[in-house]
Design a protein around this nucleic acid. Structure first.
Lengths: 222, 222
DNA sequence: CCAAAAGTGTTATGTTTACACCCATGT
DNA sequence: ACATGGGTGTAAACATAACACTTTTGG
């Protein structure tokens, strides 16, 4: 059985992903260059249409993989974009997702059959993007700042745990602030657990490796 | 121009609204009884399909009016529901909205051409609802609790301002807690402004009327 | 032995909580 | 005059912010 009224049809779901990384203190987002109309040749966030038999998040993960080669386990929805004219083809409801990974851990395919180019762009050097992707990216950046202080979203950046100095560097990069090291440790220690491991990060001294304590799912840090 | 691939078609958007009120210390939600299949005769949240040429929020406001007679200015989106089988007709993406009004200010139409019955139900007396509406309502309740402490959503409950005692009663009802009156005032006074008016609420003494200070859009109270 | 980053503790300030009495008014 | 709810202040507990020296180790 199907709805008959044409007014209910011809709506598509579009998934758009803002995938962030932090590299040497610079927060970056993954962009791709479009190979097809509309907006051919234009940079955009990795995005595409959802199939009507898949979950929205699955569509976002699939599109990200098809367009960039990056295969993730999870993404976080942050907002729906429904302006009537946001896509020139037909009415498309956009569902935005954010994720964050360490780009040293992944290989971005520079070209796929759907993408001629893909690269990480510093947030203060974003070109004009296809569709409403500049607007979507701005919302995504704000949501990322919110999520790193209210959720454990950064665990996807640090799948093997983290030292507190490197965690602090990520916070400072994304939030664009300096944090006192001692105060940062005090707050973080209420939300992480020691893994027993130690590694060297920037210094010559070893640092303890921690991971987020999943018993406290909703953390709030600052 | 239209997308050709059938996999992208036949997706509908469903809007579902949880409209709350607080009446004599009891938090209630507006339910309607369905007159048509599927789930004919079943209680549900006011909901319906979006037209492909309207904004999602507009669809939610329109459906609420058609099904209950209540005409609001605004609703807050809180979550999208995309399980493949959530509607038996065809794939329907559900977009949930919450709102809160003082039910003394509105007249609910007990029957419309789309509704045989509509009424306010106490949250601890919710029947089995159509579709996945029980699940949606549970998320809506949690989001309402969150929004009254992080946003000024309660201004729609108090379009003409409020006294602090009546505001406190609403907080206590929704959050199911008792709050110390002096501490409540201390926090609230940083987020509201005196309108200069005074009215009587429960007591014999007049109470000052306040409204939310819109210069502080994102309030956080507790 | 020194440069560079890791690790640690205390005090001051601000925020949150707990708590009890007087005021205004309608009956 | 009294019952009912409106209005107010203070001290203790807790959380946050500011601040500087010692430790480790590769070169």
């Amino acid at each position: 059985m199907e709805l008959k009224n044409k007014l209910y049809k011809n709506i598509g779901i579009h998934v758009i992903t803002a995938l962030f990384t932090v590299e040497k203190g610079i927060t970056k987002v993954l962009l791709i260059r479009r190979t097809n109309e509309p907006y051919k040749g234009c940079w955009s966030l990795p995005s595409g249409a959802m199939y009507n038999n898949e979950l929205i998040k699955v569509a976002a993960l699939r599109e990200l993989k098809e367009k960039t080669g990056i295969e993730l386990d999870d993404l976080s929805p942050f907002r729906t974009f429904d302006a009537l004219d946001r896509s020139p083809l037909q009415r498309m409801i956009g569902v935005g997702y954010i994720g964050i990974i360490d780009n040293k851990r992944v290989e971005v395919l520079k070209s796929t059959n759907k993408t001629s180019n893909a690269d990480w762009f510093s947030l203060d050097n974003i070109p004009t993007l296809a569709y409403d992707h500049n607007e979507i990216l701005n919302y995504a950046i704000e949501k990322l700042k919110e999520k790193i202080i209210t959720t454990d979203i950064l665990k996807s950046f640090f799948p093997n745990g983290f030292t507190l100095p490197e965690l602090q560097d990520v916070y400072e990069s994304i939030l664009n602030i300096k944090i006192d090291r001692r105060n940062f440790r005090k707050k973080m220690l209420s939300v992480v657990i020691d893994t027993g491991k130690e590694i060297k990060y920037l210094g010559r001294k070893k640092a303890k490796v921690y991971k987020f304590d999943y018993r406290k799912k909703d953390i709030s840090i600052f």
